[in-house]
Design a protein around this nucleic acid. Sequence first.
DNA 1: TTTTGAGTTGTTCGA
DNA 2: GTCGAACAACTCAAA
Length: 454
Amino acid sequence: MPVALLWFRRDLRLADHPALLAAVEAAGPDGTVLPVFVFDDRLWRPSGHPRRRFLLDCLADVGEQTGGALVFRSGDPVTVVKQLVEETGAVSVHVSADAGPYGRRRDDAVGRELGSVPLVRTGSPYAVTPGRVTKRDGSPFQVFTPFVRAWREHGWRAPAERPRSVAWQDGVRSDDPPPTPDLDGVVLPPAGEAAATEAWGRFREERLGGYAEGRNVPGTDGTSRMSAYLKYGCIHPRTLLADVAEETGESARRYIDELAWRDFYADVLWHRPDSAREYLKPELQSLGYDEGPGAEELVRAWEQGRTGFPIVDAGMRQLLGEAYVHNRVRMIVASFLVKDLHQEWTRGARYFLQHLVDGDLASNNHGWQWVAGTGTDASPYYRVFNPITQGKKFDPDGRYVRRWVPELRDVGDAYVHEPWTAPGGLPAGYPAPIVDHAHERLVALERLQRLRDR
DNA sequence: TTTTGAGTTGTTCGA
DNA sequence: GTCGAACAACTCAAA
């Protein structure tokens, strides 16, 4: 009886899963589907503990949903998948397409290795497969707004139906998964498809209506917190879009835009596979950065949330506490590292990827490039976030900073974003600002100016 | 073909 | 307190 192999990667769900449907179809009415996940050192090693843990928990969920049939293998997919095909006599291997630079190379190599057994790519983790939305002349968009216009016009498919029943192939040898990493107190959201669906339902009912304003206020629960679920494919963006498209108004439009950003950055990475490391604006490559023991000490203060700027410290402590940072605050802390501490964006991007549970190469690194002014956006070079102004504007009552920086508990609202000005002085245990923001802003602008003059 | 206007997320300064 | 201008320079689509 035919066996079709379903190789899970970043699509850890059974609903709205075109590759699963393709596998069921390929196996035929008498055949079976063998679900498999490969622990690939190339992807596993650079993941921090939060992402490893979240992934393992998602896999446990898939294991349960497939009645324990999910098979683990460890090693290079090129050899491991080939071996599984030989062991089981599989007629085809099914995946959701991977748009990342490594994933594409890997899948091409696996496909070649499989020879006459086809590696079938069906669907992708995006509403629109990267590469599909182009300008009229076929070239890729480099700016978000024209992209999103064309993306909306292109449209997306309705969610795929869940297969009525799947005959899972069991009894295939499985490696043990890697040991569960210690989280050291980091609190993660519940993993898996059911948790994603439930979290989405709650957001949709309770917070989607106020999203346009709420999304920028880190002290409230205004965002959907779908990022980790989207990263591992516990839920597909098409499912979200189908629900949001029923709503009208500014909030629904903004939410769709946010999903479009995710597609846009994946599209940029697809066209420019080197952009995860290389500058999208190469002329900024030679910008000078601060080095030496003094600079390293400042970076450590940033990493640990001890810069003396409350909103920056709160964000960096949220990163260590929840492996997650509110979107608005990601921009603020990123701007601080790049513009105030004069560090290369790649360094911040790397640190984020180590710690974020939702860390995604395209979204993370292009987001950092956006802040650094080296990215796709026609972003003004002079855009430097002021951590005090941003704090007052988006966290006016200090709810967010007090949650993550308890030293500020008793500082009045008026001073909570600049506690060094408080009548009682700095609270015990909280540092004075490690840099003069107004000064460092001018330094950053000056360096960019010099580069442009050349 | 050329021109024109608009462009996720900001800040400061001066009126 | 509020508001508009200035801070450059490039992409893209429409006129």
